[in-house]
Design a protein around this nucleic acid. Structure first.
Lengths: 80, 80, 80, 80
DNA sequence: ACGTTTGCGCTTTAGC
DNA sequence: GCTAAAGCGCAAACGT
């Protein structure tokens, strides 16, 4: 087999690995969507839930600091 | 002039209009970046500023409602 | 247990399911990134690989049609 | 006037400058969208137009190189 | 049914 | 240079 075919075969393997992983990723994305839909059907607000998920990603200290700073700026600008 | 050339000329005009507008847009994006940099140099936190800009886009009523709901969820989950 | 706590517990369960799924998703995203890095280290161009992945998502007919249209526009505008 | 108020006033000025610029930027984005819509109404394919705009951003040499590489990969993978 | 709003993936851009 | 974030078009979904 020529070098070209070796390279082609290797490239194809990379591509196919990526495609498999992307499929898996898509499946999980769909699962996440389903959970949100279920929560919504139960009466929860998904937008707020998404905000919560973001907040919980941060460590408590950073979150509180960020929050405090935001409050400071809001006060300074008269945002209630 | 053939029909093909007429069409080509028209297509080119659309493309060039878009390109001009994109240039303008780029200029403004750069201006925005500059303001943030200037504010940062003055001691402001740009991430918080960006959050403020977002908040001010909303109307007060919606913002308060969103905020109240978020507080409710945070309390329920013990997020301080 | 009060209704409020029931609701809180349910909300927490939704949030935690989402967090678990997002972790999995993140893991797979990292895997994809790794494959691209590995391919890059082998000498492949990742930008082109991403284009290939996109092309392979399309059905052949659509892809050829898209390609033909692009060629038409390029010719019309003198893009070589 | 207290220092706090000075700072608040300055912060407000930065925020308002940003908001003005973002409004302008939004206006231009809308203009761009309008041009695409107009072109579409005339019979042009906007997706292809966007691809053309991207191509014209590149210098000819890079574009040809990119194109050649893509063709190489397509051949290697039997994409017609 | 419609049309506005929301979510999602991707690309591009900004910040460290 | 790389990781994180924004912007964008597209698609789906919800309420009207």
């Amino acid at each position: 087999m020529s070098e070209g075919n070796v390279a082609a075969s290797q490239l194809l393997q990379y591509i196919e690995r990526i495609e498999r992983l992307e499929e898996e990723k898509k499946g999980i994305s769909d699962d996440i969507k389903d959970v949100y839909l279920e929560a919504k059907a139960t009466g929860y607000d998904t937008k707020t839930m998404r905000a919560i998920v973001q907040l919980r990603k941060m460590n408590p200290h950073d979150r509180q600091e960020m929050d405090a700073l935001l409050e400071t700026y809001k006060s300074a600008l008269g945002i209630e």
